[in-house]
């Protein structure tokens, strides 16, 4: 990834997380880390988002919301799972009401470990997601060319 072709907008949803990763994620947007200077904006609208940041271990109720939000995002899109709970269920793995990991319900591209994941780790995850996003955009372009030719 040499430079960013566009400003990636992120959508955040707390799917059954304890809040820890969510406030670290918000901390990324605030003055100390300030990812907005790279054009990364947190949007509330899934239709504007390129990267979906999900935290938490997902229960039945939030599964519906997560799937709905994912379906509303335009292609190309990338899913980043943040925190131990989003990876495997973490400390709540044995709890009766969780699926244990976002990858049980969505195709996850980048995994960010940590309980709670540190802002530096989250930013790194987003940067990796950008590389995947650009790759997908390129693929789509080639496919389109094939279809039209």
């Amino acid at each position: 990834m040499s430079f960013l072709k566009k400003s990636p907008w992120v959508l955040h949803y707390a799917a059954t997380s304890c809040n820890g990763c969510d406030i670290e994620l918000l901390a990324c947007l605030t003055p100390l880390y300030d990812v907005e200077r790279f054009g990364i904006v947190n949007t509330g609208n899934p239709k504007h988002a390129d990267i979906f940041l999900v935290t938490g271990s997902v229960n039945e109720e939030s599964r519906k919301v997560v799937e709905n939000l994912y379906a509303q995002m335009p292609d190309p899109k990338v899913v980043v799972a943040i925190g131990a709970c989003a990876l495997s269920g973490g400390i709540f793995r044995d709890a009766y009401n969780v699926y244990g990991g976002i990858d049980q319900v969505l195709p996850v591209d980048v995994y960010v470990p940590g309980c709670a994941a540190r802002p530096e780790a989250i930013i790194d995850g987003v940067v990796r997601a950008l590389a995947i996003l650009e790759e997908r955009a390129r693929e789509r372009k080639t496919q389109r060319k094939l279809v039209t030719s």
Binding site: A15, T16, C18, S62, I91, F92, A95, Y96, N97
Partner: peptide, 27 residues
């Protein structure tokens, strides 16, 4: 939307480990 069933984890983790779970009620 955020119900995990944390209270029942007291049956899975012993009382010393449970302090870590209790801390993760909320971040």
């Amino acid at each position: 939307y955020v119900h995990r069933g944390l209270e029942l984890l007291a049956e899975r983790h012993d009382y010393l480990e449970m302090s870590q779970v209790a801390e993760r009620i909320c971040g």
